[in-house]
Simulated assay, not measured.
Amino acid sequence: MTGTINDEAARATWPFVVAACHAAGLDPEGAEPVRIADHAIWAISGEVVVRLTRPGRRAAAHTELRTAQWLADHGVPAVRPALPGVVELPGERAATFWRRLPDHTPGRHEDVAGLLRLLHRLPLPDHLPPLADPAGRARARIEAVRHSSVIDHADMGRLADRADDLADAWRILAAGLSPAPLHGDAWAGNVARTADGRAFLLDLDSAAVGPPEWDLTSTAVKVSTTATIPPAEYERFVAAYGGYDVRTYDGFEVMRDIRELHMAVYAIQTAVDHPHTAPEARHRVACLRSLNGPRPWTWTAVPHPPGRPGPIV
Rank of each mutant, 00 (worst) to 15 (best):
R66M: 15
P84R: 14
A207F: 06
A192R: 01
A240T: 03
P303R: 12
W42K: 07
H104Q: 01
H62G: 15
F252E: 07
Y234T: 01
E29N: 06
F237L: 10
P33K: 01
P294V: 03
T67C: 08
L101M: 04
R289D: 07
V209P: 01
V112K: 13
A227L: 00
P181A: 08
H39W: 11
D185G: 08
P309T: 07
A192L: 04
P81K: 13
N292V: 09
P279W: 04
W14V: 14
A140N: 03
A267N: 09
I229E: 10
N292W: 00
P33N: 02
L159D: 09
D245S: 06
V246Q: 10
L182M: 06
R193F: 09
R100G: 00
P28Y: 08
A24Y: 15
W297P: 07
L83W: 14
A278C: 10
D273H: 13
A135Q: 03
V76E: 03
D165M: 10
W187L: 07
D38P: 00
L131V: 04
A160I: 07
R282S: 02
E235F: 04
V272K: 08
D203V: 00
G85C: 14
P306F: 10
I172R: 15
R162W: 07
D205G: 05
S148D: 12
P15D: 14
A37Q: 13
A40E: 09
G157D: 03
A169P: 06
L291Y: 04
A31K: 01
H153V: 12
A140S: 09
R141L: 10
T277I: 12
P303N: 10
V254N: 05
A175I: 09
K222R: 14
A281L: 03
W299A: 07
W14H: 13
E32V: 03
L83D: 12
P306T: 04
V223D: 02
H127N: 04
H183I: 14
G25T: 12
G114F: 00
A72T: 14
C21G: 07
R117T: 06
A95V: 01
H74T: 12
D155Y: 03
H274M: 06
G310L: 13
A20N: 10
V313I: 14
T63C: 13
G91E: 05
Y234S: 05
A267G: 10
P303H: 01
T194Y: 02
A40S: 15
R58W: 00
D196F: 07
T217C: 15
T2F: 02
A135W: 08
D196H: 05
I44N: 06
V246W: 11
I268T: 13
D245Q: 10
L83M: 15
A163D: 00
H276W: 01
V34L: 08
M1L: 13
E260N: 13
D38N: 11
D27F: 00
I229Y: 13
I258D: 09
P275R: 04
W214R: 10
A94H: 03
I151N: 02
